[in-house]
Design a protein around this nucleic acid. Structure first.
Lengths: 234, 234
DNA sequence: ACCACAAATTGATCTAGATCAATTCAATTA
DNA sequence: TAATTGAATTGATCTAGATCAATTTGTGGT
């Protein structure tokens, strides 16, 4: 574990600290544990382990999933750098899901007990958390809506656009997306089979909406893609 | 508007005040506006109006929905007595959806500005809200998962079981459910057509899983129903 | 450079649930 | 009590996407 600080972190303007004033920032920096690293396939936490921390992705990416009866998995979410994991674990004694690295990944750990005591005395942090949770709740509603009512094409396009936007807030070019997950994982997340995802990708490619090289997707005309997106997504 | 108090409210042990100690309870009671009443079809708030309050259903029920382009609606949620509306509106200037009464309904209003100042100084309220939002986030994830992967039967069964549980925490018998929404509204919410919902209901009835009289559903054997539920929902 | 194994693509079918259409039923009003 | 209207049911088809199956392509290990 490298001892990096929030002060030196490239994500400091995207992550929780961005909300905090100097004094609070210092205190926050003291309780967070910086930069654990993982290889692909290693877990941040497992389902049914006792909950003790929140996590923030620093680099790389992870998937959050639950295992069902017959150890088939259902993917709930993907997390990219700067994103906070654990908003769904404040009211539970054990993690309801597992989080595993999709590639080489580093992350910070935020012990829940310490976080809660900070929370009590930092109105700004409270505001930030309420906003974040609120946003999460509405975007999940949005997803839900999309899952029920959109075509496979629309769902996949929305997913891509979402990734593009998230990466672009990180400073990456918005038309260049590297997929750290497999076709089957995207399908699982979107409620589609890997075959369907594959077919959609080839079709989008034929229609010159995207160009694909393995896990790298290029969107040659962003406005066009967005328009198609909004048109097929109603 | 009748001036009822939390003290006298039948829901006081289910609603936010249940978390508060005497002094806080008093203060909370002072900022909440009690018991507005609505007839079926009247709104609590409309999409795109400025956000100023949270709401708690006191009696009756409502649906939360968004209107799309071609003024078709998509139902996001139903709310029953004791349930808090507005967890998704902390970070927005305008309501992203509308809420309309499905039957004669009364509700309380919790001005957001006043709520926030209470929030800052009541750690117990903070704890309660984090838990509530956290629970909402995980149950939405659960819904999402179910929407993508479960059969129509399973989704409908899960929906019924959910209603049964919510009504039973209110003290109603868990095997007797009154549906305040139409088949088409259930379908809309679940991502199914009203025809499909209707067919599922007749089939469940033939299989003696439920008995139906219009909008009243009876579950003769709760354990059996729960078992079927868990078996068809994987 | 070769082998073994996993991921991706592509094709051929199958099916759950949508769509379209026709009654039937229930509630409300006159 | 009849008439009107919207909801619910039921039946007949259609289709998006699943499933099954066969290659092809890519990747990591020796």
């Amino acid at each position: 574990m490298k001892e990096l600080s929030c002060t030196k972190c490239l994500l400091k303007n995207l992550c929780i600290p961005k909300h905090l004033k100097a004094a609070d920032f210092k205190e926050f920096e003291d309780i967070i544990k910086h930069s654990h690293t993982l290889n692909r396939g290693e877990h941040i936490h497992h389902q049914d382990e006792p909950i003790n921390s929140l996590f923030i992705i620093r680099s790389g990416s992870v998937k959050q999933y639950v295992s069902r009866n017959n150890n088939e998995e259902q993917i709930l979410d993907f997390f990219l750098p700067g994103e906070l994991i654990g908003l769904d674990s404040f009211n539970m004694p054990f993690y309801g899901n597992s989080v595993i690295a999709l590639e080489s990944t580093s992350y910070c750990t935020l012990p829940l007990s310490k976080f809660k005591s900070l929370y009590e005395k930092m109105p700004i942090l409270q505001e930030a958390m309420l906003n974040l949770m609120s946003k999460t709740i509405s975007s999940e509603k949005e997803m839900l809506l999309s899952a029920c009512n959109k075509s496979a094409d629309a769902r996949f396009a929305t997913f891509l656009l979402g990734l593009s936007r998230r990466y672009s807030t990180l400073g990456y070019p918005e038309n260049q997306i590297h997929l750290s997950m497999s076709r089957q994982e995207m399908g699982n997340y979107l409620g589609l089979t890997s075959e369907t995802v594959s077919r959609i990708i080839t079709r989008f490619q034929n229609d010159k909406l995207i160009s694909v090289n393995q896990k790298d997707i290029n969107i040659p005309n962003m406005t066009k893609f967005e328009n198609v997106c909004t048109s097929i997504c109603h």
